[in-house]
């Protein structure tokens, strides 16, 4: 993003960057950058915390009022930067099922109700429903795999099906109540659900596959830190 700031500023636009990795901003010297102390993936802070998001945005825009030349790099201080775990949080429904397809069926019903009440979902990049996405992955290496709809290569469909599975489970878990941290949500998904186990297994098979394209997507399925931890077990 610092490079994009250089390019756009050079074109005559005034830019201000919200920087997550301080060392990168220092090295690349964008015209204006506000370093924020949030986890990767959350440049404007916590979901649902409109006041915090507004504070970050105002602070980034305030750099535009400073005289140049750049680079202008400022730290954003926020006492609310690292939301703690919710000690009372549990996945607020029963997902008990004998196999991953049955689990996905239960999850999909919970997801439909929860996302319907909220009014939107971030699931949908693969074109599958959550249950169909799970079935596509569960049968991927079978002699008779689930047919791949037209319009996307099979291996790409697998990657996006996995994105949708994760989105459906994690979105539902957050919508069912409480204030779980990202770590709590991910621990729940990867450590306790049958879908998490399915994706871990798929990732290992992709990683060791003779299919180059499968090996390529294996870096985009399971967080690297967890993938290594799982392999060490």
């Amino acid at each position: 993003m610092s490079a994009l700031a250089h390019y756009l500023e050079g074109d005559g636009l005034a830019t201000t960057l919200v920087a997550l990795v301080r060392e990168h901003a220092l090295a690349m010297r964008p015209p204006r950058a506000l370093w924020v102390p949030f986890e990767l993936g959350r440049p404007f802070g916590a979901p649902g915390n409109a006041a915090q998001q507004a504070r970050v945005l105002r602070a980034a825009l305030a750099l535009l009022d400073r005289p140049g030349p750049g680079p202008l790099l400022e730290d954003f201080a926020d006492a609310d930067a690292s939301p703690a775990d919710d000690p009372d949080w549990r996945f607020a429904a029963a997902l008990d099922a004998d196999d991953v397809i049955a689990e996905a069926r239960v999850l999909e019903e919970l997801w439909r109700v929860a996302s319907g009440q909220r009014g939107f979902t971030t699931v949908g990049i693969s074109g599958f429903s959550p249950r169909a996405a799970v079935e596509f992955i569960a049968r991927y290496f079978d002699d008779e795999p689930m047919p791949n709809p037209a319009g996307m290569a099979r291996v790409s469909r697998a990657r996006y099906a996995i994105d949708d599975i994760k989105a459906a489970y994690l979105e539902t878990a957050a919508l069912l109540g409480g204030h779980p941290s990202s770590r709590q949500l991910l621990d729940w998904f990867w450590e306790t659900t049958r879908a998490g186990a399915l994706l871990r297994d798929f990732n290992e098979r992709a990683y060791r596959s003779e299919d180059r394209n499968l090996r390529l997507i294996s870096g985009s399925l399971v967080p690297a830190e967890r993938s290594i931890r799982f392999r060490g077990r």
Partner: peptide, 10 residues
């Protein structure tokens, strides 16, 4: 997969 998406999902 190495950045948080649960925030975006919410």
């Amino acid at each position: 997969t190495n950045f948080d998406r649960t925030g975006f999902q919410q």
